[in-house]
Amino acid sequence: MDANVTPVPVTPTLKADVRDLDFYYGSFHALKKVTMPVYERKATALIGPSGCGKSTLLRCFNRMHDLYPGNRYEGGGIVLHPDNTNLLAHGVDPIEVRMRISMVFQKPNPFPKSIFENVAYSLRVRGLRNKSELDDRVEAALKGAALWKEVSGRLSELGANLSGGQQQRLCIARALASDPELILFDEPTSALDPIATASIEELITELKEKVTILIVTHNMQQAARISDYTAYMYLGEMIEFGITDQLFIKPQKKQTEDYITGRFG
């Protein structure tokens, strides 16, 4: 064997792939033939200027658009692996999709319930009633969201009494509790101060060891810090997708370069 052979880079497993996806808000064509892969146990960041469709694409993954009239998916869809289910197919129940893929929103949105009930809710909708199992899984989720130490003694307090950063970690615990295959983050730190932002970023870096992450961010440094892959979108189109380091150091497209160097956007 030749010792000088450069090791073949291990291709990560595909978790989901978006194929020629078109999306319409009424007559507005918001996503145009978007194609991109999402790799298992990696963090993929979606970047681009406001209105480029990055949040729209993210919300296709858990069929959030189904909640509002006039929204239409067209084209190929989003295929989830390993079972090859097209998340956007008519026969697929959006509730099933949301049970497999959970989401953390831009502004922390804890329910006006206790800390415990906030996390337990995603388990309760799955029919879990056993008290000791609920206790265990809520604890595990809160530990996973690096919140357990701060709230273990006051699980019955209102979630809204926590600070902004803690509320967002509570929402992450809620998203984690149900053992999702993929977690969607929609600009999760844009409503937080720099210290809370740092703790959420650290958490996301830890989480990607266990779960696939897709994150929308308008902060390019954040994308560079926490993601393995980055997709740059502009006006509803996928301009460039690549390994984060490569995309930021040596973008293939002029448009991407202009955006990441701050000449535009």
Binding site: S102, F105, N109
Partner: peptide
């Protein structure tokens, strides 16, 4: 946002 949070839980 509360409604979306609930639906997002499934």
């Amino acid at each position: 946002s509360v409604r979306e949070g609930s639906y997002a839980c499934g």
